[in-house]
């Protein structure tokens, strides 16, 4: 009888602990980028086979980046936290671009090219004291593309893809520069 009670307690304790950590992993804290939601959904799964249009109207297939580590960054011109990340992404592209890494910016503005193209052309971002344009490929996204990535809860959302085309990490909200850099370096 005592044994049964102990087993019940042990099983329930495991469930409690597991539920606690599962909840913590998906919870958005009210403040602080360092506690953004790291969503493990999709981790280890193959990246979706998607074809997007670049700003010249040319097809860009995600598969063409196979062999590179790719940080797919869903953003929009009206999204303030997305703008905070852009200088970090420019810096990552500068730092790791020659080592087999690229950022792929997926612009999710409803108006598409008409707002994204002028933004790319005009905006300059402060990267270590110098004004830099966005130096990584930009493509136009939509809800169908987002759905292929499992749907987006908000912007920015970043998905890191390994050289062999597997999703490694998915972050909803601001990325942590240090953390994502470490993960990128571990993949290069």
């Amino acid at each position: 009888m005592k044994k049964t009670v102990l087993i019940v307690i042990a099983v329930l304790a495991v469930i409690v602990v597991a539920a606690h950590y599962a909840d913590k992993a998906t919870r958005l804290s009210p403040k602080g980028a360092s506690t953004r939601a790291d969503n493990p959904n999709g981790a280890g799964k193959p990246a979706p086979d998607v074809t997007l249009k670049d700003l010249d109207g040319k097809d860009v297939n995600l598969g063409q980046y196979k062999g590179k580590v790719v940080l797919v960054n869903f953003w929009a011109t009206w999204c303030d936290p997305c703008r905070v990340e852009i200088p970090w992404l420019i810096e990552m592209q500068q730092k790791y671009g020659a080592k087999g890494f690229t950022v792929l910016g997926v612009a999710m503005d409803d108006e598409g090219k008409s707002v994204v193209a002028p933004f790319i052309q005009k905006e300059r971002f402060d990267v270590n004291g110098s004004k830099s344009p966005m130096n990584y490929p930009i493509v136009l996204g939509n809800d169908a593309i987002a759905d292929k990535f499992g749907g987006l809860l908000g912007y920015p959302t970043s998905v890191l893809i390994s050289r062999d085309g597997k999703q490694i990490k998915r972050i909803t909200g601001l990325i942590s520069y240090e953390e994502i850099s470490k993960t990128i370096e571990s993949q290069l």
């Binding site: 019940v8 307690i9 329930l12 469930i15 409690v16 606690h20 909840d23 809860l153």
Partner: peptide, 20 residues
Amino acid sequence: VVAGGLLLIVVAAMPSRPQI
């Protein structure tokens, strides 16, 4: 009683609906 109490804790600790 112990099992019932722990079950309540489990239910309370379960992840709720999506957070965003």
